[in-house]
Design a protein around this nucleic acid. Sequence first.
DNA 1: TTGTACGCGTTATCAG
DNA 2: CTGATAACGCGTACAA
Lengths: 337, 337
Amino acid sequence: MTNPSERARMPSIRDVARLAGVSHQTVSRVLNDHPSIRPETKARVLDAIQVLDYRPNVAARALATSRSSTLGILSSTTGEFGPTSSIAGIEDAARAAGYAVSTLNIPDTTPEAIGAAVRQLVREHVDGIVVLAPQVRVFSVLRGMAVAVPFVSLQTASGSDGVTLSADQVAGARMITEYLIRLGHTDILHVAGPQDWIEAESRMRGYLDALRDADLPTFPPIRGDWTADFGYFAGQELARRRDFTAVFAANDVMAIGLMHGFRDAGLRVPADVSVVGFDDVPVAAHVAPPLTTVHQDFPELGRRAVQILLAQIRGEERPAFGPVAPVLCGRESAASR
Amino acid sequence: MTNPSERARMPSIRDVARLAGVSHQTVSRVLNDHPSIRPETKARVLDAIQVLDYRPNVAARALATSRSSTLGILSSTTGEFGPTSSIAGIEDAARAAGYAVSTLNIPDTTPEAIGAAVRQLVREHVDGIVVLAPQVRVFSVLRGMAVAVPFVSLQTASGSDGVTLSADQVAGARMITEYLIRLGHTDILHVAGPQDWIEAESRMRGYLDALRDADLPTFPPIRGDWTADFGYFAGQELARRRDFTAVFAANDVMAIGLMHGFRDAGLRVPADVSVVGFDDVPVAAHVAPPLTTVHQDFPELGRRAVQILLAQIRGEERPAFGPVAPVLCGRESAASR
DNA sequence: TTGTACGCGTTATCAG
DNA sequence: CTGATAACGCGTACAA
């Protein structure tokens, strides 16, 4: 290489050493606050660092330690509200802990795509990976491929088996279903999320549990795809049946579409049918009628995922978190019968 | 370092060289497809690479070249639909071009925070930065600090002066305002975005231009903050005034809040007042009434930003793109007078 | 407590 | 066309 004429070389650890009158090794020790350094030496070094505005070279450090101070995010979601919010939490927490964040989106969740993505992240030497791939199969693929890097799977399962973590979606779904029951509804439908999303399964489970505990009839859930468009068509279809008085949609966006479908079919919400959603997206309180839903603290989930991952990386004990409590937001879209 | 007992060392360029019976240097040449390599030598090397499943070590490469094959995203947005969509486009395009993506969010846009963020990204040796900080001052700060790395600023200005790029928001805003005018409205209000967002300014500009060209009265715009909650309160306030028949909100989310505010104040949309938004968020077509708005291809914007940035990095000429055309989505929330 | 020597995996330079 | 050899900037082992 040897490029003397290049712009301005960044100061290296040796420049600092020279200025401080020590060896570059001592500087290194100061940097990684090694225990045995004489305070005055340390002061001199820190001073030199100040003067030169020296910053360690991350690439060199990564090469020497084969660690990168970078966390990877492997995501297979496409703008859904929950995952997007969690990603923001992940990024902030990681940055706060001194880690860079490298994001990788995969369009499909075939084992090949997942494998390639993980390998890519490993190649980038990320120290850990947060997986935001709520699809069931992603999880199993990950399990199977013995990833060489610590990883945490977010919102991938309702139980936590050491590497997963999630809001208690089952509890949230149960809570809102019970809310409908308290309002006097006895025939409650569920528009679920895609079959391979664990979150969809968890929300359905909460729904089923609540109905079972109340000795109410259950209906086969309608399988949706999280989109408002699907909700709309489902609403038009369902309007023909009149064997229910309330619908719990697995997310707000479908719920909003559902209400639209009902409206177009001549059904009034909540007079003829109550509708509730899940997530509490920002517009939920402002649609007509305002949507009853469950609020979840997705960013917090992301932050916790980072804490767990860092503990894993550092070989510490996994921090114990209480559940991320879902909060019921009762609004006009659900009325008593 | 010297860690012989560590798990399994990844194969290095020398392992490949040994297996292929050449020097590691030759392997390097093959990797970077250097022109002068005898085909049969190259074949042998590629073969060895296959066998060993060898992958170049990115950290070593970054150290040697002081380039990282990483693009940075500097974002100061908080979940707004447009920027979030663009980020997805950026990530995908960057990955497709063989670049990793490092995201950095800043909560506030003080010059210090921006400076710190850019320095952080520079420390990470990113080869280029896409800035998604739609606030005016971010742009000026960036201009002032002579960033040592190529950067492209997305959605930061309506004109493009070589380092910026944006959808033609002025045209989109003008288009939807003219649509209202064609519907017979003559008194049209505008609920704008925050004053320091260039996009807010552009949309307002389009609105003002359309009114001016039609010789219609303009009203001082109401300054919003992009949120549905603001829209709601604005709607309640505006309902007292009855000197207008249509409102153009600078984004869909505010428009949805606005409709809610009108509704609560006893105004019917669109019978009493027409409302239009901007962005075409996924639920826009499903709220009540369905929202007339302008669709923008935000992911495409992100992809283009990457193309421009890469050209800059490679010292190529800046690719010329046509405008990202806004598309009007006429729906029930706006009716003829 | 501090310094020396070396290795990490790759690219660049300059011979041959 | 190919191969030595020297960087790149930092951390670790070992000696002092």
